[in-house]
């Protein structure tokens, strides 16, 4: 595609800007056209749930593991769910091995908030014994190929992996010890949050930026949208400023696109049957 490196020149920026002014994109899409999304779930046998999501050429793999531990003291009857992301250097020549950086942490937090504030998980259901045992879910997102808009890719991967979870049921035996009762169950997920990211160059706003656009854009904004057509979390990236009108218009667009995408993906098909 377009030659992009860490050092971005005015050549790429001017070209992308010129096209956007005419309502065109370098990959031939319209301003509010999303790339093709494909989801594969349940491909890691040792994970409780897993999903492999492509948005265009961007790819994120997500796996869910669990642990049983003590709840937080302020929420003794609620389970815990944490999202982590790894920008593994496999994905891009720009990623380096080592501890997760700022971007990786921000991405994980944005995905986490999308899930948390949509109330899609029933945290009470994740409690085994109040104050003593709760399920702790670890959602680990691995960026496998970076072609832009990893936030949306990771958010879809995370929710698809959660829907795919088959969790062993715990019970407390007579001595108060924790035991497996021999069965599995899926999680009770009431909402499917979908994240939609918009980029902005000058005053042109467009959905689902690809890597070349991401390198030159002034700013971007990610919305998590739930099934009730509400925006449940927003994250603004980079230095561009947004007027209130722009934010409101973009939110409306996000709801529309998310709704369409949710219908198309039908993520609930990945839920395993309880047994």
């Amino acid at each position: 595609m377009i030659d992009i490196s860490k050092v971005v020149s005015s050549l790429e920026k001017n070209y992308i800007r010129k096209l956007l002014k005419q309502g065109k994109r370098i990959d031939g899409r319209g301003l509010f056209e999303y790339r093709e999304v494909t989801v594969t779930a349940g491909f890691v046998p040792k994970a409780e749930g897993s999903a492999d999501v492509h948005i265009g050429d961007s790819r994120v793999m997500c796996g869910v593991k669990y642990d049983i531990g003590r709840p937080y003291s302020d929420n003794p009857d609620k389970g815990v769910c944490t999202v982590m992301s790894e920008f593994v250097p496999i994905a891009s020549p720009m990623f380096e091995p080592g501890r997760p950086g700022e971007d990786a942490i921000q991405l994980a937090r944005v995905v986490d908030r999308g899930i948390r504030h949509t109330n899609c998980l029933d945290y009470n259901e994740l409690c085994v014994k109040v104050g003593e045992f709760v399920y702790i879910l670890f959602i680990d997102c691995y960026m496998m190929d970076h072609f832009g808009n990893l936030t949306d890719t990771a958010a879809i991967a995370a929710i698809a992996a959660l829907l795919n979870v088959n969790l062993p049921r715990a019970k407390i035996d007579a001595d108060g010890k924790l035991e497996w009762d021999g069965t599995y169950r899926p999680l009770n997920i009431s909402e499917i949050p979908i994240s939609i990211t918009f980029g902005k160059i000058d005053d042109v706003i467009f959905v689902d930026p690809i890597l070349a656009e991401e390198m030159v854009l002034d700013g971007s904004i990610a919305f998590a949208v739930d099934e009730k057509k509400q925006v449940t979390s927003i994250q603004k990236y980079k230095s561009a400023t947004w007027s209130v009108e722009e934010i409101m218009e973009t939110s409306a667009k996000a709801v529309e696109i998310a709704d369409e995408l949710r219908k198309k993906l039908n993520l609930r098909q990945y839920t395993p049957k309880a047994c």
Binding site: M1, I2, D3, L11, E12, N14, Y15, I26
Partner: peptide, 8 residues
Amino acid sequence: ISNGVVIV
């Protein structure tokens, strides 16, 4: 180069 675009 000052205009056009470079692909790789």
